[in-house]
Amino acid sequence: MGRFSALEWPVFRQLRSGDHLGRGPAVASAKTRATQSRNATADRVVQSICPYCAVGCGQRVYVKDEKVVQIEGDPDSPVSRGRLCPKGAASEQLVNAPGRQYDVLYRAPRATEWQKLDRDTAIDMIAERFVRSRRNTWQETDDEGRILRRTMGIASLGGATLDNEENYLIKKLFTAAGAIQIENQARI
């Protein structure tokens, strides 16, 4: 705010307007007068659900320039009526958290440090190990001849924070592959 530009100097504005003590409009700077809420200037609003606990509070995600700028409660939700708990309110920081990882890391046997790996090779390596371990530990029948058709060599843990669709794909893939040791937080 160019202090001396024209008559914008608050002292003149104090005299001009009724605000002689310089408490309100006379001292407001141009930037303050142009204040706008982040939500109003967001490109789009997306309705989502909080990822933390099972109450399933509605969330509104405000996006600007393809980046999440604000996540707050969704007033339309009959479950939460626009309210959130501390974790829900911190969702925006969960998405943009400083500690979040963005690249695939790999630790070779006996290595003491991570090494970067590009995603496609990582998935290929995992697929190979999956098939190899499945073959090593396949059990066709048990000792009494009853069919088992399973592998005990592959296990999985986790799913309560995943979507139903993801759980569905995981269960279908693992069951088709015969890996039955699948578990998730519902048990803990």
Binding site: C53, G158, A160, N164, Q181, R187
Partner: peptide
């Protein structure tokens, strides 16, 4: 009062060893 966002979902469409969807 279930604990996780979709824990009910992960027992309905279970990533659990003893259940099919």
């Amino acid at each position: 009062l279930r604990g996780h966002a979709s824990i009910q979902g992960s027992t309905d469409i279970p990533t659990l060893f003893n259940l099919l969807p």
